[in-house]
Nucleic acid binder design. Structure first.
Ligand SMILES: [Zn+2]
Ligand SMILES: [Zn+2]
Ligand SMILES: [Zn+2]
Ligand SMILES: [Zn+2]
Lengths: 155, 155
DNA sequence: AAACGTTATGTTATAGTATATCATCTTCTT
DNA sequence: AAGAAGATGATATACTATAACATAACGTTT
């Protein structure tokens, strides 16, 4: 269990930029704005919510269609994760981490959309896989998502 | 591990009817049609797909809004499960079972929407819960859904 | 600098999922 | 027959998402 640095928006942006440039891709101004929105709000947001964020907090008009494309790009760079269950998007919480990005699991608060990115024990995943294979199915991805309530939103 | 009877549409409908009447609710003609659609197609369907099913196979016009209400009713009677991940609905595969309905887990084929309703070992759920609580979250429900590929749809 | 190809963004159209509201019809009870 | 409760129909609307085409910005080559 390695200690996890809480990431600041500016720090993560900087790291994201150097990551992109080292890969020959560009973290443009618009892409920075979307990533900033996710980093700042500290929770999962929809594409349309990000459009609103850019308008309200950054004074930048960014149509939802552009946001979708940008999210796709950021996901490809492992800077953002798409949460199917919540139909929202969240900044990766390990942008500043050196270590390789394992397949993550997400705990998503149904009430406030706070997201915790965790790594479930491999043994647990293995026995889950076993259950699934016992039913002649195969997990499509080991990126699992769980509907949860966070500390602040318990009933 | 109790053997699981494969359920026929007619058998399940009959059981569903007596179940409803024993609870003072009514399994109307329209509700039967929707349940029939799910039982017959043997996979998860959306509300709009069920509208199409009723039109094409039963010669009955059933607006999607009605289907939504009916699905809500059927879910309340534990005859149907709503799958958030797939945004579709599936007939419970235990309508004919005597035993109480445990909290189910679903394996959903991303390609063909075949669904397997399984019961994961309690010990596995327990250690999952432990991981989740370790992150100060709580599972919103123990009805878990997993994106999968079925036997027929492996790459 | 000019031309070109590539990448990024803008714009519009459209599909799919879902909920809210009000109106109508059916069923059951009295 | 009247009234209440339940079920269905109809319409409006919101949100999520993708496709297709047009324009703009950027980088490279000449
Ligand atoms: Zn991550
Ligand atoms: Zn919360
Ligand atoms: Zn079931
Ligand atoms: Zn399949």
């Amino acid at each position: 269990m390695s200690a996890h640095k809480a990431q600041t928006t500016s720090g993560a942006l900087k790291q994201a930029e150097s990551l992109c440039s080292s890969r020959g891709t560009r973290l443009t101004e618009k892409r920075k704005q979307v990533l900033t929105g996710l980093l700042e709000s500290q929770k999962a947001l929809s594409a349309y919510e990000l459009t609103a964020y850019c308008r309200n907090h950054l004074g930048s008009e960014l149509p939802a269609m552009s946001v979708y494309r940008i999210l796709e790009f950021l996901e490809g760079e492992s800077l953002v994760h798409r949460l199917d269950l919540a139909k929202k998007y969240v900044a990766c919480s390990h942008i500043l981490c050196e270590h390789k990005h394992e397949l993550p699991q997400f705990l998503i608060c149904k009430a406030c959309y706070k997201v915790q990115e965790i790594s479930i024990k491999k043994s647990l995943i293995d026995s889950l896989n076993q259950s699934v294979e016992g039913a002649s199915f195969r997990l499509a991805s080991q990126q699992l998502e769980f509907d949860c309530f966070c500390e602040d939103c318990y009933e």
